[in-house]
């Protein structure tokens, strides 16, 4: 008999940017562990569709909702609705993010604004909205998506790397503030992961990065999802304020 992992049964976990890539893989994995998953995305139709697919695949309740994490008011309203409909929020995976490369000398203020508004302000908005719901029950786990480039820097990604460094700091700071209220906050910092976000990279660059990865392969969305599930679950009950690299030993 196959052993069923039900460690998240009854937990309500919100995954922002959950319609594709790492977010979708995480939503699927959490659902396979029994969680009620709330999938969010900028495209409401895609979020609802992903939620329906996940519900069918894993036989768990799901919900899909559309909003832009960069819109503080929309985030606040969305989390009120989620809390009202689900009755609780036990976990948040603040995964929604954007990536645009630009060399120093070619970075526009608009590009910086896009990186900061979605990756930084969006993460803060969702952590704040979910944290307020979690405070009522004095428990919860939040995982934000940092990046190896935020920890070590990356040529051509100054604005993106800066935004991801800020996200790691969100985890460290919010962990200090929310810890006394029973809420843990951690970050995962993926290395080079095989998603649509890296489709624009030249093949030679990807091969070079793989050569500088101890495990000699690209990461998969499932690799990152497993780390996130660990941090969302009680398996990591005494871990908070950490930035966990999921990078196969990549050295930039």
């Amino acid at each position: 008999m196959t052993e069923v992992d039900s460690s998240l049964t009854g937990r309500v976990v919100v995954v922002t940017g959950g319609t594709r890539g790492i977010g979708r893989a995480t939503a699927d994995l959490l659902a396979s562990s029994g969680a009620t998953v709330v999938v969010t995305g900028r495209d409401e139709g895609a979020a609802v569709k992903a939620a329906a697919e996940i519900a069918e695949a894993h036989a768990v309740p799901t919900m899909g909702t559309g909003f832009d994490v960069a819109d503080f008011a929309a985030v606040s309203e969305a989390f009120k609705t989620i809390a009202k409909e689900q009755g609780r929020i036990d976990g948040l995976v603040a995964n929604a993010g954007v990536l645009e490369d630009a060399l120093v000398g070619m970075i526009t203020p608009e590009l910086v604004e896009r990186m900061l508004s979605t990756n930084v302000a969006g993460t803060i908005a969702t952590v704040q909205a979910a944290g307020r719901v979690m405070m009522r029950k004095r428990s919860g786990s939040i995982v934000v998506l940092a990046s190896i480039v935020g920890e070590h820097g990356s040529a051509g990604q100054t604005a993106y790397a800066a935004s991801k460094a800020a996200v790691a700091t969100v985890a460290r700071s919010a962990a200090k503030e929310l810890g006394p209220r029973g809420i843990r906050v951690n970050a995962v910092a993926p290395g080079l992961i095989d998603t649509a976000m890296i489709a624009h990279l030249p093949q030679e660059l990807i091969e070079d990065r793989v050569a500088h990865t101890s495990l000699r392969r690209l990461g998969t969305p499932a690799d990152v999802a497993k780390a996130i599930r660990f941090l969302i679950s009680d398996e990591s009950a005494f871990i908070t304020g950490q930035v966990l690299g999921v990078d196969g030993g990549l050295v930039l």
Partner: peptide, 11 residues
């Protein structure tokens, strides 16, 4: 911090 606890309790 007390303020946020108050908010949660009022809600």
């Amino acid at each position: 911090l007390g303020h946020m606890s108050l908010v949660a309790a009022i809600e």
